[in-house]
């Protein structure tokens, strides 16, 4: 068994849909600015996004928020279809994208059932004043290639090199930015880690997205607890 298997637990009961994870990701990972025009073209890049669904009929409508990011599947459908092996699974359970190899067939994006792979349709642009703000640890991707959530691999690297680093240094930007602790990141193979504890505690509520496809995601969701149900008392 490999030492590390990175994963994430997302507690939907805690998620408020505030989008701070989206903003944090944007600035950590040098993601080009999603202007209104780009949104209208449906080409916005958000490595993590908050999907909002409406449930029920008026007036009993409820908004549901689901943060969706790359699920880092163990049996990732995006991996076998790439002709140039630009995407592969590393030994730490991460699904990684090699920007240099990618030629942009977009095959992986089509085969991703979660639609979390993004294509650089345009050359990324930042206003001059923003250029000093770019993260030097993250590649700026040119046009014509795929990109997606890396679980902030640069932070994982830095963490493993520095013995004094704390959990906060390991966590991806989205997890650190989350105000309600809805996102928990960590090593699934370490039974003492926070994520393992959260995972076992929320076992009854846990599910994986589109599980019937057999993609074996490493992102685990914990169901929202409905008001007034039996479950409500067991959660906290």
């Amino acid at each position: 068994m490999p030492e590390n298997k990175w994963g994430m637990v997302i507690d939907l009961d805690k998620c408020t849909g505030c989008q701070s994870c989206v903003v944090a990701c944007q600035s950590e990972n040098n993601i080009p600015i999603n202007t209104e025009d780009i949104f209208n073209q449906r080409r916005a890049i958000e490595w993590i996004r908050i999907e909002r669904y409406w449930e029920g009929e008026f007036p009993n409508v409820r908004a549901r928020y689901v943060p969706v990011l790359c699920q880092h599947c163990d049996e990732a459908p995006c991996e076998p279809v790439c002709p140039v092996l630009a995407t592969y699974h590393n030994d730490q359970g991460l699904n990684v994208q090699v920007y240099n190899r990618c030629i942009g067939t977009r095959f992986c994006a089509n085969n991703c059932p979660y639609t979390v792979r993004f294509f650089n349709f345009w050359e990324p642009e930042w206003p001059e004043s923003f250029k000093n703000q770019l993260n030097p640890d993250v590649t700026v991707r040119s046009r014509g290639i795929m990109e997606k959530c890396t679980f902030c691999i640069q932070r994982i690297r830095r963490f493993s090199k520095n013995s004094e680093s704390t959990e906060r240094d390991l966590n991806p930007a989205c997890t650190n930015a989350c105000a309600t602790d809805a996102l928990v990141f960590g090593n699934l193979n370490d039974p003492e880690s926070k994520i393992s504890k959260v995972k076992s505690k929320g076992k009854k509520r846990s599910y994986k997205m589109l599980e019937e496809l057999g993609t074996e995601p490493n992102v685990i969701y914990l169901k929202k607890v409905e008001k007034g149900t039996k479950q409500e008392h067991n959660v906290h």
């Binding site: 076998p80 030629i103 942009g104 067939t105 290639i145």
Partner: peptide
């Protein structure tokens, strides 16, 4: 494709600089 100028990685079966083959599963 997004970067036709890098298509040598696709057309040519072996990438000498990285020492890997194309993905025959694709």
């Amino acid at each position: 494709v997004g970067r036709p100028w890098r298509a040598d990685l696709w057309v040519f079966p072996y990438d000498f600089s990285r020492g890997i083959w194309i993905n025959v599963k694709s």
